[in-house]
C-alpha cells in the first residue's frame, strides 16, 4: 500500500481541510504508515470469521417514541461560531 500525495489531498478535501504542501507530505507519510499497518492486519486469515458489527454482544436496544424536552434555542445556539436571530450562521454554501 503506497499512499500518494494526491490521495492525501483528496481525503483532506473530503474533510474540508486545507493543508500546505509540507503538511501534505507529513500527512502522507503518517497516514501511509497507518495503512501499512492495516495491510499487515489484512494478511490474517478471516475466511471463517463473521464480520463484527459491534464489539458488544448485545442487540435490540430501543426507546419508546415519547417526546423528551429539547434544549432551549439559546442553549442550542450557545456554541455557534456565529448566530443570526435563531439560526446558526455559516459562510455561504453554494453547491
Amino acid at each position: 500500500m503506497s499512499l500518494t500525495v494526491d490521495d492525501t489531498r483528496w481525503v483532506a478535501h473530503l474533510a474540508r481541510l486545507q493543508l500546505a504542501d509540507a503538511e501534505l507530505a507529513t500527512m502522507t507519510r503518517q497516514l501511509g504508515a497507518i495503512l501499512d499497518y492495516v495491510t499487515q492486519l489484512q494478511q490474517a486469515r478471516t475466511d471463517n470469521v463473521e464480520p463484527l458489527a459491534h464489539p458488544l454482544p448485545i442487540h435490540n436496544v430501543f426507546r419508546d417514541d415519547s417526546p423528551a424536552p429539547s434544549l432551549s434555542v439559546d442553549a442550542a445556539l450557545a456554541n455557534a461560531p456565529q448566530r443570526r436571530d435563531n439560526f446558526f450562521a455559516v459562510p455561504a454554501v453554494l453547491d
Binding site: P67, S70, L77, F87
Partner: peptide
C-alpha cells in the same frame, strides 16, 4: 433522540 419531529416548529427549538 426524544426531540419532536412536528413540522413548523420555531427554528432550532
Amino acid at each position: 433522540c426524544g426531540c419532536s419531529t412536528r413540522f413548523g416548529q420555531p427554528p432550532n427549538s
